[in-house]
């Protein structure tokens, strides 16, 4: 892995903080530990149907810069504000702007995280994803310039989710989607499997040192290895394919490349909750690692198939629209 000079120490510090912070979470008091459902092998059971629907933003909004936590009253006000904002029918639109999906499409629940944090990003402490490296900034700029000239030459120019190929819900890192934020976890000796409703993707994670793919194989969801650290399932994922066709990494909808490493920690804290943490470390893209924390809350099943390509009328619509726009431009 290519290391960027000067950030190695930062990276090591972040890793140390991630591990120690998570250890505090894993050291559940004995009285409470008894209440955690356990599998036959004694490890905590992560089985069940879960949702990570949340109104808490990934990054802390600028107007909350000095505020890592809401009060209960502030949280209620924020929830109301976000729900109103999401209902784009009520938002003023510029002429020529068709707007975006409204609340009939969203399904991110009605509440912020129970922790009352103001962002899912818990590290860096400012709740913001760290800046890109100079190299990544240049790549991003080049992509912006390309995209402005080639918005839809073919389906390859469009977002992977528009093409019904990949969504960020399954991760890693697992991040809240606009809707279908439902997951089913099945646990068996030596494996934990996660099924995501958002595009019926499954990650089968070995927990006993089994190797699922050779080291030189890259996959869209990477190659994951799990192990139990006390009562916490730790999953390390590397070999995440850099999807050059779509000009950015597939695992996280921002940007990542082939050097991405994600460390996830699943800690069942009570009958209703798994606390999920994920540290994103990509030294050629981000100037330092960053960590998110989200609660997965037990929810009703079943999960339904989301066969996204079934009626993806939007893709031909987008491509045909682009062709007509070109003809219009040529005839002027």
């Amino acid at each position: 892995m290519k290391e960027v000079p000067g950030v190695t120490r930062l990276r090591q510090t972040a890793m140390l903080l991630f591990v120690t912070g998570s250890m505090m979470l894993a050291q559940t008091p004995p009285a409470k530990r008894a209440a955690i459902p356990r599998a036959a092998d004694g490890h905590p059971s992560l089985e069940g149907i879960w949702t990570n629907a949340t109104l808490t933003p990934l990054q802390r909004p600028a107007n909350l810069a000095a505020k890592p936590y809401f009060t209960a009253e502030e949280a209620a006000a924020f929830e109301k504000q976000v729900l109103i904002q999401n209902d784009t029918d009520n938002q003023p639109r510029k002429a020529g702007d068709p707007g975006n999906y409204n609340s009939a499409f969203w399904d991110r629940g009605n509440h912020v995280e129970k922790s009352l944090r103001t962002s899912l990003v818990i590290d860096p402490p400012d709740g913001r994803i760290p800046p890109f490296t100079a190299e990544a900034q240049a790549k991003a700029q080049a992509f912006r310039e390309y995209a402005a000239q080639h918005p839809a030459d073919g389906p390859e120019d469009r977002d992977l989710s528009e093409r019904c190929l990949m969504f960020s819900g399954i991760g890693p890192p697992m991040l809240t989607e606009p809707y279908n934020n439902n997951y089913q976890i099945v646990q068996s000796p030596g494996y934990v499997s996660v099924l995501a409703e958002m595009n019926h993707d499954v990650r089968v994670i070995p927990t006993d040192g089994k190797v699922t793919a050779p080291n030189d194989v890259s996959q869209w969801h990477g190659v994951s290895h799990g192990h139990w650290d006390g009562d916490t399932l730790v999953v390390e994922t590397t070999n995440i394919k850099f999807n050059n066709q779509s000009h950015f990494g597939v695992a996280y909808r921002g940007m990542s490349d082939e050097n991405l490493r994600v460390t996830e920690r699943f800690t069942r804290t009570d009958a209703e909750t798994i606390i999920y943490q994920a540290m994103v470390d990509d030294p050629t893209v981000y100037t330092k690692p960053w960590t998110i924390e989200e609660a997965f809350t037990r929810t009703k099943g079943p999960l339904f198939e989301y066969a996204c390509h079934e009626g993806n009328y939007a893709m031909p619509g987008i491509l045909q629209g682009a062709r007509l726009a070109e003809q219009g431009a040529n005839s002027k």
């Binding site: 990934l58 909004p61 904002q85 999401n86 994803i129 918005p151 606009p178 809707y179 987008i318």
Partner: peptide
């Protein structure tokens, strides 16, 4: 990214 409210969904309405 995701500044105050999510602005992306499955497809780009503008496209």
């Amino acid at each position: 990214l995701w500044v105050a409210a999510p602005v992306s969904a499955h497809h780009a309405f503008t496209a």
